[in-house]
Each structure stands twice: as C-alpha cells, then as structure tokens.
Amino acid sequence: MEYTLKELMTIMAAREIQDGDIVFCGTGISMVAAMAAKHINAPNSIIFFETGAIDSRLEEIPMAVADPRVMFGAASNSGLLESFATMQNRISGDHVIGILGAAQVDKYGNLNSTCIGEYLHPQIRFSGSGGACDVASFVPRCLIFMQHEKRKFPVKLDYLTSPGYLDGAGARERAGLMPGGPTAVITNLGVMYFDDDTKEMYLAYYYPGVLSQTILENMEFSVDISRAKEAEPPAEQDLKILREIVDPYKLIL
C-alpha cells in the first residue's frame, strides 16, 4: 500500500511510544504520532499537554496545545504549573516521553528553537522555548522531529534552547540536570538513535529507497552509519487508522 513521507514519519515515531507511557505532545505531527500510537501499539498510553490537559478525548485534532479540543473530556484541566510539575516530579515524570521539534539539532540532541545568528541581533528569530526547555530538562526520554537538511544539523547550535546530552556522556549530570535525554530523531530520511556510551547520534534506520550516504550529505556533522537498517514500512492497517481515525480531514498529514 502506498504511503506518504509524513505517514511514514508518524508511524516511525508511534513505534517509539511504549504502552503505558505518558506522552507530552506539541502540535502538528507530534500530536498525530501520539494519537496513532494510542490506536496502534500503545493503547494504554496517555496524551497530555503543557497547558494542563491530561488524557483528552481528542475527537478532533487540536491545532494548538491550548485548543479547546484538548480540553474536551480530559481527566483534568488545570494549568501550566501543574503540567510542568508532572514532569519535574520524578514520581510521575519518569513515565513521560516528550515529543519535540526544533530549527536545529546537534550530534548530542541539543535543540535550538530560538534564533539563527547572534542572540541579540539574530538573522532569523523563532518562537523560542515555550515548554521545550522544560520538557527536555525533566523527562527521561524524548523524540525529536526534524527535516534532514545540512543547516538543521550543524556542528554548533546558534542557541541552545533545550538540553539533550549537552557535550556528551555525563554532561547532564555535571550540569545538575536529571538523567535522561533524547532517544530518537525522526526525519524525512530516517531515524537516528543515541549511543549508550558516547551519547552521540547514530543512524538506526534509513527509509526504503534512501541511501545512508544521502543522509550524511544532509548533515553538517557525521554520524555512525554501520548500525543502520532499512525501516519497515507502515502496515496497511496502520495507514487505515491514520487516514480514517486519526486525521480524516488531513489537517496535518
């Protein structure tokens, strides 16, 4: 069965979500991935939002984390203090997986969503952290959505908004952060994981028809490709769920 790139990326992300995970969601493809996981491989996962809505019913796709569609049928509608406390508090926080996006990611999974160029006088200004820095600081596992382009995978970030593994193994702990960090970077060409020892990014999956070399050509830094395998395409049933249940109006996909 034919599928689009966005559908493939969604399914690749959904597969990283485990049953029982509390999934911190942003908007767009991250929300679709979390909804897909709930319908496909992690029926007992719980979706929650930085605005304070937890386990929302999500009959329609929210276009923002403050969309009234996240408020409908939620277990609780509270506020920002409560939602971030849920992640900072180790009792609940250890069960949270975050899904983030950014303008730049480096080889240790640190993210920039603030600016390109000098901070005070940037060439391009982005929205800023929002809750991304908080999530990346607190939770043990994070998924990152990126487009594979050289300038988006730089050797050095223009601004470090959200912490990954900082400058390598043990750096989070030295900085005083909680253990944890990004576990996967999902792009339009493949999926990267992080080495257990060095905390450096490596290529885990390339999509059908994509060469590892092409992926390397779209990054400023180099990564290990020796462990890379071809990604398994989405199953017909998975695509049906995406198209008929998760995003029938094609708002995101």
């Binding site: 600081s137 912490p163 900085a175």
Partner: peptide
C-alpha cells in the same frame, strides 16, 4: 509560570530544575 507564582506568593524567587546547561 513560576515567576508569576513567586509574585503571587510574595517571595523574591522560586527554584526549578529547568534550563541547566542551556543558553536561556
């Protein structure tokens, strides 16, 4: 959010574990 909370509580600052190691 914490800064508003500190203001509402009447304390000069409040502690969090967010942002260590970042440019923020």
């Amino acid at each position: 959010s914490l800064r508003f909370h500190a203001g509402a509580m009447g304390v000069p600052f409040i502690a969090t574990r967010s942002g260590l190691g970042t440019d923020i």
